[in-house]
């Protein structure tokens, strides 16, 4: 029997950080966390009024009709937006000596379709449409790169999305999300749990 703790951001996450008292309540042998994960969507889920695009070390395609943004500016801005999540990851590492694993946010979706029911918060905000998938995929890549970098720095394991969760182009398979394309559904959750059980023997 292994004691596992699962951490995610508090509901009102702004300016909320984990406190050391948490160790009085939990003494797990393994920790899995999903801090943050949506920050890249702030920049690229819906089209910005002024269109943009960028390249990465592995993505060379760039849409010339959009304003070019140098990679480092995207990375630094996104990293700044992820500070809350990264702080909590750092504090968790500080409080616990057991293995910690940060679970990667689900991959970018390919496209919405007629069956998609977008959450109400999107209503009235879709005038400019959804950002093209390749750009959202690049933003997810940057998000992942930043998370992986900080995991390595902190001595935290990083769990990438399950290999079977993506299609041939690297997008989240349609059957693995339901109404909100930014989150995986139960089936996606099962894949992640299986992945955890296989890798970490829990």
């Amino acid at each position: 029997m292994v004691n596992i703790a699962v951490f995610f951001d508090p509901v009102e996450r702004k300016n909320k950080v984990l406190r050391p008292e948490i160790t009085d309540f939990f003494q797990p042998q393994q920790i899995f966390c999903t801090f943050g994960g949506s920050e890249h969507n702030v920049f690229g889920l819906l089209e910005a009024p002024k269109l943009f695009d960028f390249v990465t070390d592995i993505h060379n395609d760039y849409d010339q009709r959009r304003q070019f943004v140098p990679y480092q500016l995207i990375e630094k801005t996104l990293e700044r937006a992820m500070r809350g999540a990264l702080t909590n990851l750092s504090r968790l590492r500080e409080f616990y000596s057991c293995p910690i694993t940060q679970i990667c946010t689900p991959p970018a979706f390919s496209s919405i379709d007629d069956t998609t029911v977008l959450p109400t918060v999107f209503q009235g905000r879709l005038q400019l449409g959804i950002t093209p998938a390749p750009i959202r995929q690049k933003l997810h890549y940057v998000h992942t790169r930043i998370t992986r970098f900080h995991c390595e720095r902190l001595g935290v394991n990083f769990l990438p999305p399950p290999e079977t969760a993506t299609d041939s182009q690297g997008y989240l398979r349609r059957e693995l999300w339901t109404k909100d394309p930014t989150h995986g559904n139960r089936e996606y959750g099962k894949l992640v749990l299986n992945q955890i059980m296989e890798i970490y023997d829990v």
Binding site: F8, V11, R13, K14, F43, A48, K50, V121, D180, T182
Partner: peptide, 25 residues
């Protein structure tokens, strides 16, 4: 700017979205 306003609004949207999904998914 229009885009800065958009970013500020989207920041809120994504937070609401996350919280909403935690409850319903």
């Amino acid at each position: 700017s229009e885009t800065q306003k958009y970013i500020r609004e989207m920041d809120k949207v994504v937070e609401v979205l996350c919280d909403e999904e935690r409850i319903s998914n």
